[in-house]
Design a protein around this nucleic acid. Sequence first.
DNA 1: TCTGGGGTCCTAGGACCC
DNA 2: TCTGGGGTCCTAGGACCC
Length: 441
Amino acid sequence: MIGLVDCDNFFVSCERVFDPSLEGKAVVVLSNNDGCVVARSNEAKAMGIAMGCPAFKLSSITSQYSQSNSEDLALITLSAQHRLYRDMSARVMTLLAEQVSHLQIYSIDEAFFVLPDSSKSEELLRQMQQLVWRLKRDIGVPVSIGVAPNRTLAKLASHIAKRERRTGGGNGVYLLDSPQQIATVLQTTAIDDVWGIGPRLAAKLRQRGIYTAAQFSQMPQRWVSLQCDTTLQRTYHELCGQEGHGLPTSNVSHSQSVTVSRTFGHLITEQSDVAQAVTTFAETVAEQLRTEHVVAGSITVWVTGDRHREDLPYYANSCQLRLDTPASDTPTIVQYALDALNHIYRRGYAYRRAGVIATNVTTTDSVQLNLFDHCDYARRRRLMQAVDGINHHYGRRVLGLAANYGDRPWTSTPAKLNSLATQAAGLYIYSGMVKKNEGSP
DNA sequence: TCTGGGGTCCTAGGACCC
DNA sequence: TCTGGGGTCCTAGGACCC
C-alpha cells in the first residue's frame, strides 16, 4: 500500500504557526511581487478565491462576497516567505522519515511512502491518525493522509480526506482499498480531477465521451494502448487498482535541472540591468548545484517582455550553451549565463522576466573532463568551499561577485512582511552585513 | 520499375505536477 | 497600476553512426 501525506493549505498553515491570530480567518499568501494567490485558507477558499487569482482582483471578490452574505469579511493578504516554508517543509519531512519507510518527497508539502501490505485496516488507520496528530502537535502543521494500492489512488484518497475535514467530518485520514469502494469513488471523480490528467488530456477524453474516472477505467485495454501515451496508460492501470511500480520511480536522487527566475518589479530596458539580474540568478543556481553536490552540463538563459502590455512590442527568447566541462562554481556559471544573455538581448525592448536554468545535471564525481581544458579544478573547488563556508556562517550573500554589488534596479518593491515569522526563521541577516561593509565591497 | 536496416544522441516543445 | 516560480517526463524529428 502507498500512503500520501499532503499538508493542508501549506503556506497559510506555516504563517499560522508563527501568528496564531490568523487562525479561523480568511488568509491568502501571494506570490513574489505580490502578483497572484499561491495559497488559501479554507475560509478564503469558501469565498470563491481561486488558486492563481491575480492580486488586483481580490478586493472586488471580497466586497462582492461581503455584500451577498451581508457580513463584513476582511481578507488578510500575506507576502510569500519561501525560506520559512522550505524550513517548515524540512521539519515535516524529517519527522515523517522517522515514522514511515521509503519516504519519497514529491513537493514542498507532499510525500509518498510505503506501508506494509500485512497491516489490518483498523491498525493502519490508527497509525495514520497518530501521524496526523504528531505533525500537528510537534510542528503545528495540519496534514491529510490518503492510503491506497498505488499513487494515483492515494492522491484521490487524500483529496477525500481533505474534503471531509473541510466539511467538518473526518479525521484527516482516508483509506481507499476495497474494489467496491474504489469503484464508487471513481464514479464521483471528474476526469480532470485525476492526478496526471490536465486540461488538454481531459478535453481529448471528453471528446470521446469520457467524463469520469470510472468511465476511463472501463475503457478496453486495447483502446488505451492504441490511443494513450505511456504516462496516460500508467494512470489508467493505476485507476484500475493495479499496483504502481513501487517507490521510488527513479534511481536518480539529485535534481535533473535547477531554475532561478523572477518577474522584475518593473520593466527594465538596459542590458546592464538585465545582466545584473541574470548574474544574481546564476549565482543562486551555482550555490544550489553545490549544495546538491552536482554540476551543470548546460546553462540556459531566457528573457521575456510583458504579455499584458499591448502598447509595447513583445519579445521573448532563450539561449542554451553547453559547458566545455560540467561545473558548479559561481564564476563559470555566471560567465556562461552572461554569454547566453549576450546572444538574446535586443536593445529597444522592455523586459519583465528572466531566468537561468542549469540542465544536463550530473553528480560531481561522474564528470567527463575536457582534454584541452587546463583549468585547476581543485583550486576552484577550494575557492567555492571557502565562499560557501563564509556565507553559511555570516549569512547569505555576505560574500559575492563584485559584478553583483550595488543597487538592484530589477527587484520588486519591499514586500508586506510578516515580521514575527521573519524573525523566527532568522532571515535577512545579510542585509545588515552588507550595510556594515558599505564602501568596501 | 527498383534506393536497407539498425541504431544513438540531442533538442525543442508539449503535457503534466505543486 | 496590477497576472509566480520551480519542477518532471515523454515524444517527434534531426543529425549522426555503421
